[in-house]
Write a protein that binds this DNA or RNA. Structure first.
Length: 273
DNA sequence: CGCCAGGCTTCTA
DNA sequence: TAGAAGCATGGC
């Protein structure tokens, strides 16, 4: 991987496979969109404008310092995805999925934002999930260049259900408030939970109302960098039954979560089941 | 215009 | 302890 500080911004190249489209639109993040030839979105209070290149991407208008401070970790650039992907090719069924969208990466998103996002995701369509999350930001987040940051837990913890009514989030509003209050008052220390053994971390997250096994697993994988986490939603359950009968998440090893993302994306695009 | 959505809680046997 | 209903809302 090479990193260059250019007039345009920071250019990252030399990546074996890296796809903004596959990474930003594979169901792990909800605040990025593609318009005018570039991906843009806001993460950790900063706007990113990204252009796909042959073997990497450009972060437009980004300084090297900001890249190092934030985006290098966000895009998980120091992990050797190609080596991990190659190891998946030994399994014929997994190879099909890993070859389908080889440019997928797991983003290392903010744990709090991920928690709320996947609470919102339950029994919901992606377009509506995106809409609710955007309303959370525009109504309660701080304005930043290019839009609004995701609001802090403290900010939401001071609200009540009537105040959340404009979100049109349905019964999930109560769940969001419970999560916010637990994070704000220290009952749910996300940065500490991120370091716990997987089982204990799951149990801690599931103390939040509306957080079950699936949402907890998504927070661990997308918001806590726990690559061994393996979310099982309806698509994954169908795919597992069909493509990997008898296999358990543990069978996929320490990077099971990355395998999961290949399988999930493949099964959604192919509409398995 | 119904159907159903990257589920979870609650209720029932 | 397993299985199903109910849940608020709105894309499609």
């Amino acid at each position: 991987m090479q990193i260059a500080d250019t007039i345009q911004g920071v250019e990252v190249c030399g990546l074996a496979h890296f796809s903004l489209a596959e990474t930003l639109d594979c169901g792990q993040a909800f605040r990025f969109s593609f318009q005018d030839g570039r991906w843009q979105g806001i993460a950790q209070g900063r706007q990113a404008r990204l252009i796909q290149k042959e073997d990497g991407f450009v972060l437009e208008g980004c300084s090297l310092a900001e890249f190092e401070r934030q985006w290098r970790r966000y895009f998980d650039l120091d992990r050797d995805y190609e080596a991990i992907r190659q190891s998946f090719l030994a399994d014929p069924a997994l190879a099909v999925c890993a070859r389908y969208a080889p440019g997928i990466r797991i983003l290392r998103q903010d744990a709090w934002e991920t928690l709320v996002s996947f609470i919102v995701s339950q029994n919901n369509h992606v377009p509506r999930i995106k809409g609710i999350i955007e309303r959370i930001c525009t109504l309660f987040g701080e304005p930043v260049v290019g839009g609004y940051a995701f609001p802090t837990a403290q900010k939401l913890a001071n609200l009540d259900e009537p105040a959340l009514e404009p979100l049109r989030a349905g019964w999930r509003s109560g769940y969001i408030l419970d999560a916010a209050r637990r994070v704000a008052d220290g009952r749910l220390p996300l940065d500490q939970i991120a370091c716990l053994p997987l089982k204990e971390a799951r149990e801690a997250l599931m103390t939040v109302r509306g957080v079950g096994p699936k949402v907890a697993e998504c927070v661990l994988l997308y918001g806590m960098g726990r690559m061994e986490a393996f979310p099982l939603d309806v698509w994954m359950k169908r795919a597992m039954a069909l493509l990997f009968p008898g296999r358990t998440p543990e069978d996929f090893g320490p990077y099971a979560g990355i395998a999961q993302q290949y399988i999930f994306h493949y099964s959604r695009m192919q509409k398995i089941g």
